[in-house]
Amino acid sequence: MQGPAGSVANRVGGTMSFLSRLKSAVVGVVAAAFLSTAAVAADGPTVGVVVPTLDAQFWNSYVAFMKKGADELGVNLVVLNADNKPDQMVKSLEDLVAQKVDGIIFTPYWATAARGLTLAKEAEIPVILTDSYPDFSPQTERFPNYIAFIGPSDEDAGYQMAKALFAAIKPGPDGKKVIGVVNGTAGTSVAIDRRKGLEDALKEAPDVRVAGEVDGNFVRDTSQTAFESLFQGNPDITGVWAANGGTATGVMAALKNHGKKPGKDVMVVAMDLNPENVEAVKSGELLFDIGGHWLQGGFALVALFDQIKGIPVPAGADNVKLKLLPLTKDRVAQFEKDFPGGVPTYDFRQHSRFYNKDAKPAVFEMQYSN
């Protein structure tokens, strides 16, 4: 993996954050998603994107970064929201195929990978999957149009979250550290792999007891309701492993409703590096966060753009799992210095082999400068 790129175009600045400046653009793209691509197309290719839900801050960050990339590369971006519904995910993919887009990027929650890839294969549309992956590899005879997967190293992230949590909580009278677990969307590789990382850490920590587990579906409100029930039945919980940023926000709200102070009475760890979670780490309410993988959408856009332009993704670079950036309170100042507004510097054209024959890989891992 390469470190952060050197030269930078269009660095985000001013008093507004990157995500704030692109919020209206994202809304506009989503609102126009079902319009004919002829209405927006100029010279550039049209790429369709389907996200699991735009109710989650993570996916808005993902789309915002892709929108920046589309502007720099000259891509018409069509974004569709599955709204946390499996049927809508498939319907969105059908719509993109009907629009005859030049490429598709989607996140195959709810076992939709094979169905979506089949639809795209029949229409000869190249596809990159992000965040969650199926039980088969890219660039095979079955799906030659599945050109790459780009997503996080979820198992490693889940393990780091757990280790930070276990180290911070104190044992009860019985010598046990009692934790609650709020998992993500059941059946997705994302949720499965993060839970594997937690399990790896539990095997190394016989003094930790899991009081119970609930499914938060990776969204705030569901996580809050689910954890409130879990905590009510297990008030001895002093640590919570939350599967993502929205989940952690819901958990912290639930704890406050029970008169508990996150970061003092109950420690919480999370994943995503959403802006509100970064603020929670800064304030001491959130013990540990890890993320940056919403960048995967922009990375995928560069690779798919080059593929459409006749520069294929190399077979050795078709399955990418990103190691993520950890954040604790003592690193917040460095994080804010290195990533103003939470955004790394990234020049999409410099990473495109179509625009730059000597381009570095489209993918890099966020790292602290010190």
Rank of each mutant, 00 (worst) to 15 (best):
I105C: 00
V78K: 00
Q99F: 15
V8T: 06
A64T: 12
I147F: 07
V30H: 09
V79I: 14
A31P: 11
S17V: 11
G13Q: 14
E72M: 13
V127T: 00
T140C: 02
D55R: 08
A120L: 01
V40I: 07
R142L: 07
S137W: 15
N81I: 02
A56K: 01
A32G: 05
A41Y: 08
V26W: 03
I104P: 00
K100N: 15
V29F: 15
L119P: 05
V90N: 00
D83C: 01
N60F: 15
M66R: 13
R11L: 10
T15Y: 12
V97P: 04
D102P: 05
D83W: 03
R142H: 10
Q99T: 15
V40T: 13
A31L: 14
A113H: 06
L117G: 06
G69D: 08
L19H: 06
W110K: 05
I105R: 05
S20V: 14
Y62M: 04
L80G: 02
S24Y: 03
Y109E: 08
L54N: 14
L119N: 09
V8F: 05
A42H: 11
Q88I: 12
L19M: 08
F143C: 08
L117D: 12
T118D: 12
W59F: 11
E141D: 14
D71W: 01
M16E: 12
N81V: 03
T15N: 11
M16C: 04
L22K: 05
R115H: 05
V63D: 08
A33F: 10
A42L: 12
T140A: 07
G28F: 14
M89Q: 01
W59Y: 09
L93N: 09
D135C: 10
G28Q: 15
F34A: 07
Y146I: 01
P45H: 03
D131N: 06
K91C: 05
T53A: 07
E124D: 13
N76P: 01
R115Y: 02
F34N: 14
P86E: 01
A82T: 04
M89H: 03
S7D: 09
A42F: 13
V63F: 06
A64I: 10
F65R: 06
L117A: 11
L96H: 04
S20E: 14
V12N: 15
D87A: 03
Q57C: 13
Q99C: 10
V97C: 05
A111H: 04
A42V: 15
A70I: 11
N84M: 09
V29T: 15
G103H: 05
G48N: 07
G48V: 07
E72Y: 12
V49C: 04
P144C: 02
L77K: 09
A33Y: 06
F58C: 12
P126H: 00
G116V: 11
A82P: 03
R21E: 03
V50A: 06
E141P: 04
V79S: 05
E94S: 08
E124R: 02
V40D: 11
Y62K: 03
R142C: 02
G14P: 01
V51Q: 08
